[in-house]
Nucleic acid binder design. Structure first.
Lengths: 190, 190
DNA sequence: CTAAAAACTTGAACTACTTCAAGAAATACA
DNA sequence: TGTATTTCTTGAAGTAGTTCAAGTTTTTAG
């Protein structure tokens, strides 16, 4: 039933059979339809989402009214607004399904109780967060050092399948250039 | 002796007296002189640094040969390359003391053993990493949505003291514009 | 299957920055 | 304290991108 998340957790830590049972009993999968939101700007984020299947994104609406994607999440990724989650502050972000997706949504109160019952899960979430932060640092490096065309080519080389999977304008904003410029890069008109 | 780190840890979790003793016995403060490096590009990073006093930064050298600061760390912050740390891969970053700094350097092997002996520390490092990731997301948001001048003013409002504390060219690169443009912003010549 | 919505393309005009080069000012430390 | 080094400033020229607007193609969903 929850093989995806249990397998992911067990890549990083060992779980006892009793712990697996406990987890199973706390988790449930829900489907988020394409374009539906699980978080809107201004709300307090008190849920973490594990993506079992599909694709989600975190985005903002910039002062010109254009959406800009900050983060994509696919199978086996967690997505949430950690700052809003920890500080109980209003979120600056939207989190939306890019494709109709199956996610495991865990409320903060539920997760905190699970973490008390299965303390070894702390290590799992520590490693997940540390790796995510490391990836964010690399992302900033690429944004700082590469031209728009270099960022596109680099991304395409690293994630060739993913480029087909999301609308170009979302990927353009994730790579920090305009949808129009993406068109020109792809057409070789730069 | 290690009040700074013990106080910081105890903001997030409870420690037993015996655990405090154990930690005390494992930690030692070392001084990093201004401009000295604790990590160079190409090395594998297997140490985490807790800044007791001073200021460190993580930076890269871009293709034009200019340094670009990705991250500053001051008192009560951790600094490391988490990706290199977890994956045993060569680092893309330099980590350097901006001011002569007192740090607690914890080797991965030592930390792993401490985490086994004091499992509740997992929670501490989880929260630290989750907050750091949240802050990185906000940083990307600011880079995406604000002009150079807006980023400078925003940073100056949030961290008025820090602006005085580091060379302007380092702050300029952290905010992703050139040192020359920083000069013009400050002179009101934009 | 078809209408409506979403996504993509193109060119022209524009602009927020960068780069370069050289001098001035501030700071570190022998 | 003095000198070397580091940091900051300024203007001129250049450019990697944006914005706008309008048309075209593709995809979605009833």
């Amino acid at each position: 039933m929850h093989d995806a998340i249990l397998n992911h957790i067990q890549k990083f830590i060992h779980l006892e059979p009793s712990e697996i049972d406990l987890l199973e009993s706390c988790l449930s999968i829900s489907q988020i339809k394409r374009k539906d939101h699980v978080l809107q700007e201004g709300q307090v984020c008190n849920t973490m989402y594990f993506i079992v299947k599909g694709c989600m994104r975190q985005y903002i609406i910039n002062p010109r009214g254009t959406e800009q994607t900050l983060q994509f999440g696919v199978e086996n990724w967690w997505i949430t607004d950690y700052l809003s989650y920890h500080n109980h502050t209003q979120s600056h972000f939207y989190i939306q399904a890019v494709e109709t997706s199956d996610v495991i949504a865990i409320e903060k109160s539920v997760l905190e109780s699970i973490l008390i019952q299965i303390p070894s899960l702390e290590k799992y979430f520590r490693i997940v967060a540390q790796k995510a932060f490391g990836a964010a640092q690399m992302r900033i490096k690429f944004l700082f050092t590469m031209s728009a065309e270099e960022r596109y080519n680099h991304f395409k080389n690293q994630q060739p399948d993913f480029v087909q999977r999301v609308p170009q304008y979302m990927l353009a904003s994730y790579l920090d250039f305009s949808a129009e410029f993406m068109s020109k890069i792809r057409a070789g008109k730069v």
